[in-house]
Simulated assay, not measured.
Amino acid sequence: MEHEADVVEELTADHLAARQLFETLRGLDPGDGRRREAADEFTIELVRHSVAEEQFLYPALREHVSGGDALADRGVADHERIEQLLKELEEADPAEARFEELIGVLAAELTAHIEDTERNLLPALVDACSAERLDELGDLVRTAKALAPTRPHPGAPDWKLLAAGTSLVDRARDFLAGRGRPS
Rank of each mutant, 00 (worst) to 15 (best):
I44F: 07
A146H: 04
V8C: 01
G68E: 03
P182G: 15
A172H: 14
G155A: 08
L122M: 04
I114H: 09
D73N: 14
A172C: 14
L11V: 08
A17T: 14
A70I: 09
E100F: 06
A52V: 11
G75H: 07
A17N: 13
A39H: 02
P152R: 04
G165R: 12
R74V: 13
A164C: 10
L86H: 08
E115C: 05
I114P: 06
G67A: 06
E80A: 14
D158H: 15
H79G: 04
A39Q: 08
A17L: 14
G165K: 11
P182T: 15
G31V: 07
I82T: 11
G155S: 09
A112Y: 12
L89D: 05
A124D: 04
R133F: 02
F99I: 07
P59L: 02
L137H: 05
A177M: 14
E63W: 02
P182N: 14
S66M: 07
A172T: 15
G165H: 06
E101I: 04
R171W: 05
S66D: 14
E9L: 03
E100I: 01
Y58C: 02
A163G: 08
L176R: 14
L134C: 00
S167M: 06
D6W: 03
F175W: 13
E54H: 11
L46E: 08
F56S: 09
A13R: 10
V65I: 13
P59Y: 09
V169N: 09
K145F: 02
D93E: 03
L134K: 03
D69W: 01
R179P: 12
S167N: 08
A164Y: 11
L122C: 03
A156K: 04
D40F: 05
R34T: 07
E45A: 15
L102N: 06
T117K: 15
D40M: 03
L121A: 13
P59M: 04
E2K: 11
R181W: 12
H113Q: 10
A38S: 13
V51C: 09
D139T: 08
R179G: 10
R173L: 14
Q20R: 15
P30F: 06
T24Q: 12
L102G: 04
S50I: 11
R151Q: 07
